[in-house]
Write a protein that binds this DNA or RNA. Structure first.
Length: 270
DNA sequence: ACCACAACCTGGCCGC
DNA sequence: TGCGGCCAGGTTGTGG
């Protein structure tokens, strides 16, 4: 569920309570959370290591440790992270717990169990295939144009493809296409230069607004401090099927593309 | 190269 | 109250 803005909020929310803390123990009640290593191996390799920083790449959270390894967490559809006192109550969806040496714990709550945790020497083994960061300075119109060049793909699934651009998910892909005034079923080879410029600006605008609003809390997403974001209050099309477009009043439509719900204004998006 | 679909999970909601 | 079906912010693998 969390997309780039939500994951960015999680990273920011965790920094104050995690940076410099040492991991003393790992408990895991859903071993499939661990990707590529056993719980025992995770425990052995992470014991006594301290967290040096918290970064984000696409929708992945990166926790570089003091020995060069990096702990990586992906929240997938329903993951939440929080740092709380070790004696505070857990519930049945708290599947993985990293104990810290200050009496607190980093807890991975994950109702649908799709989330994943890695521990790697080289982060590229996990995030190496991701496309560019859409909010980075160097993500330019020219770069977008170059990545579109020679391809013929339906735009909505293309925006969801993390190897094309990293970080957009179902909410921000729909919102960006609305801001750009482009229909989600259009294919990448039909975009004019002006439309590519609009799409580029729209992707950045949608993600920046998401961050500015603290992320979208539609169902399960909560920031690490347990509070909701506010992006859901300003969504233009996402899950507004049948409601009036704020720009022209036409009812928002819903279709399925690439197996995902897709929302758009049939009048504003051509 | 691209698309459609299933799978991985749990739980809420809706209609019967 | 129960049950089936559909829905959910993500990713990966398969087969066409």
């Amino acid at each position: 569920m969390p997309e780039l803005p939500e994951v960015e909020m999680v990273a920011r929310g965790l920094r104050g309570s995690l940076i410099g803390q040492m991991i003393t123990e790992v408990r895991c009640y859903w071993p499939r959370h661990m990707d590529g290593l056993s719980v025992t191996e995770m425990q052995r390799r992470v014991h006594g290591r301290s967290i040096q920083a918290i970064g984000r790449r696409g929708k992945y959270l990166l926790f570089p440790l003091d020995d060069g390894q990096t702990l990586i967490i992906h929240l997938r559809m329903s993951g939440r992270l929080s740092v709380v006192a070790a004696n505070s109550p857990t519930d049945k969806h708290t599947h993985t717990i990293f104990s810290l040496n200050n009496g607190r714990e980093l807890r991975f709550w994950d109702q649908r169990k799709f989330g994943r945790v890695w521990l790697v020497d080289d982060v590229e083994t996990v995030v190496g295939k991701l496309g560019p960061e859409p909010l980075d300075e160097d993500f330019s119109v020219a770069m977008l144009q170059e990545r579109l060049n020679g391809r013929k793909r339906t735009l909505k699934p293309l925006l969801l493809d993390q190897t094309f651009v990293a970080g957009l998910g179902n909410i921000y892909a729909d919102e960006a296409l609305f801001y750009a005034g482009i229909h989600p079923t259009r294919t990448s080879d039909t975009l004019s230069e002006a439309e590519i410029v609009r799409l580029h600006g729209a992707m950045k605008k949608a993600l920046q607004l998401g961050i500015a609003r603290g992320g979208a809390s539609l169902e399960l997403y909560l920031r690490p401090d347990g509070t909701k974001g506010g992006m859901q209050l300003v969504l233009a099309v996402f899950r507004r099927t049948g409601e009036s477009c704020y720009d022209c009043g036409t009812p928002i439509e819903r279709i399925v593309l690439g197996g995902r719900s897709t929302h758009f204004c049939p009048h504003c998006q051509i």
